[in-house]
Computed example of a mutant assay.
Amino acid sequence: MDSAAYDGPHIDEHHYVARLVPAALVDMAPEMRAALDDGVTAIEPRAVEVADRAIREGAPWLASLPPRPDSGWQLDRWEAAVIAAAAYRDRYGITGMGLDADMATSREQRRDV
């Protein structure tokens, strides 16, 4: 995982943006599709950057996850979990120590759930 190596919008195999937000995969007006694609382009690199920083700095909430695998699909899944958790924490300004610290305590979090 490397934010410097980000190569454009990505919707994972389960149709989520940043492994967190369901992708809009229905037919729509070209203008709406372009706007949503712009959102994906903004969200993805930010999520990867925040996850990279958490790993580099040894964020305490990472201890809530299993140990980082060395390679293979297990590493891919671990990185996807870190990206999703980091994006969620970034979106809602969660600063607590645990993975789920302060879950759904703001009006915005309750609205988005």
Rank of each mutant, 00 (worst) to 15 (best):
M1S: 07
M1P: 02
Y6S: 02
D7N: 13
D7T: 11
D7I: 10
G8R: 08
P9A: 08
P9G: 02
P9Q: 05
P9E: 01
E13Q: 02
H14D: 13
H15K: 15
H15G: 14
Y16F: 15
V17P: 01
R19F: 15
R19E: 15
L20D: 10
V21T: 09
V21L: 02
V21P: 01
P22W: 02
A23L: 11
A23Q: 12
A24Q: 13
L25C: 07
L25D: 04
V26Q: 14
V26T: 14
D27N: 13
D27L: 11
E31P: 07
E31S: 14
M32T: 12
M32I: 12
R33T: 09
D37H: 06
D37R: 02
D38S: 11
G39H: 02
G39A: 11
V40Q: 05
T41W: 03
I43P: 01
P45A: 08
P45M: 05
P45Y: 02
R46M: 10
A47F: 00
E49R: 14
E49N: 10
V50N: 14
A51K: 03
D52G: 09
R53T: 06
A54T: 02
A54R: 01
I55N: 03
I55R: 10
I55M: 09
R56Y: 00
E57I: 08
E57S: 05
A59V: 02
A59D: 14
W61D: 06
W61M: 05
L62E: 06
S64C: 13
S64I: 08
L65R: 14
P66A: 15
P67V: 04
R68W: 08
R68A: 12
R68C: 11
P69G: 01
D70N: 11
S71P: 08
Q74E: 15
L75S: 07
L75R: 05
D76K: 15
D76H: 13
R77Q: 12
W78D: 10
V82C: 03
A86P: 04
Y88Q: 08
R89S: 07
D90Y: 10
D90F: 11
R91L: 05
Y92L: 01
Y92H: 02
G96W: 09
G96T: 07
D100W: 15
D102L: 07
M103Y: 13
A104E: 01
A104R: 04
T105P: 00
S106N: 00
S106G: 04
E108R: 05
E108H: 07
Q109T: 11
Q109K: 09
R110M: 06
D112C: 00
V113N: 10
